[in-house]
Every structure is written in C-alpha cells, then in structure tokens.
Design a protein around this nucleic acid. Structure first.
Lengths: 107, 107
DNA sequence: AGGACATATGTTTTTCCAGTCATATGATTT
DNA sequence: AAATCATATGACTGGAAAAACATATGTCCT
C-alpha cells in the first residue's frame, strides 16, 4: 500500500525553495537567519520550509543559544540524490545545461 | 547543479492521481478507458495525467486499434519504488497503517 | 463516406498551497 | 524583569495547477 506520507515526501522535493535549502545545507549546517540571508528569503519563509523539511526527516535541528542550527539528515538525502542521478543519467542528460539552482556534481 | 527537470519529476510523484495510475499500471498495462473506469476518474483527467507521466518517461504508450495501451517504464519506476521503500523503512514504519492508495508489498 | 468508439486537446472553473504579514514564544543580556 | 535578538507559528491571500467541461482528432467498421 502507498502510504499517505509519500505525497508530502515528494511534494517537498518538488518545491524549489526546499531544494535550495537542501542544496545550501549540503555544504554544512546553518542557522535560520543565515539561510535566509544567503538565499534572499524572508525569515518566516525559511522557518516554514525548514519545519516541513524537519517533519519529513530531511533535516535535523539543534539549539545553540538563541539560534537553531539545521543540518541535512544525510541518511535520507543521499539516496534521493542518487535517485536523481539515475534518472538524469538515463533521460535528462541533455537538460543538464543546468541553469537554475547550483548543485553538486555527480558522485 | 540541480536541473530544472527535477521539479516536474517530483511534482508528478507528489500527485495522488498520478500515483494511483502508477500503482494500477504496476499490475500490468492498460488502456485509458479501463484506467478511468477502475479508478473512477474522468477520461480526460486520465488522459491529461497519462500525458504528463509519458512526458517524464514514467509510462510508455502503444497503439492497439483505437485504444492506447499504457505501461510503466520499469527502468524509471523501479528505482523510485526502491527509494520509497528505503525511506519508509527508516522513518515511516508507523505510518504504514496504509489507509489510502493500495500499493505493492516490499520487494 | 459516415457513424461509432477511443483518446487527445483546448478552455474554463475550482481547489489548494507557498509566501507574506503579523504576532507569539523562547533565549540571552544587562 | 525588561529589552533585544532569533526563531516559530497563526491567519490571510494571490497565483498556479488540477479537474471538469467541451470539442477535436483519429481509428475501425459497414
């Protein structure tokens, strides 16, 4: 049976804002305001999106003073990146002019 | 770099209608009207969704008389199912009461 | 050719969600 | 404890996407 959870799982990955956050965090953990600054997003927007990411275990949070440091949960994110690679490898080579969001090179 | 193509790729997987179609087709190829009947969807709705699925290479179509038979492209879909399994295995065991869309059992 | 059936496609309507704005909570410092 | 900083959360809204609706295309049969 398909779990209800698949829908939010993939919806998250379909959202550019969340993908950009994932991408940024792939370089290392950061607090909310830094993420907001680096991406040029509003603080509340970042918080809302981080909450969604955390609900799905894409990221984890820990306190540090007043700040909250968010980090990727690699165990979840890496398989996703691998999946993307497989798909792109097979069908979207030509689309990889890769205008748009910056991203790591293939593993 | 993240490719633009990721967005439609995941958006497709976030859509219940498309997931239901994928699920149904996982049992075998079918024509449009049978899909519509089995899922209780309008024909145009099914066609629109199949088109989107075909554009992303999730399904393939072939003519058979006036009908069009749609089938999963297993090379694309299987890795996705595997990813879902990994994720569910890790975090969503408890959510697998699995009300909602019927789905295959784990491989 | 014309009619019937199967599917695709174009257009309108409706639904839903991401972002914004406003406010609340929580932590630190003085 | 009040002020300030960092983040979270609740309410609202505009825009996008999906479904419904209407029509076109294509195929088979007589």
């Amino acid at each position: 049976m398909i779990c209800q959870s698949y829908e939010p799982f993939f919806k998250t990955l379909a959202d550019p804002t969340k993908l950009e956050i994932i991408n940024l965090l792939s370089k290392g953990p950061l607090c909310v305001s830094i993420i907001a600054m680096k991406l040029g997003f509003e603080q509340s927007r970042v918080s809302h999106n981080l909450k969604a990411l955390a609900d799905l275990h894409f990221v984890t949070a820990l306190r540090k003073g007043k700040e909250r440091i968010y980090a990727l949960d690699e165990k979840v994110v890496m398989p996703i990146l691998k999946l993307i690679d497989q798909y792109v490898e097979r069908y979207d080579k030509h689309m990889c002019k890769c205008k748009g969001i910056p991203w790591r090179r293939r593993a």
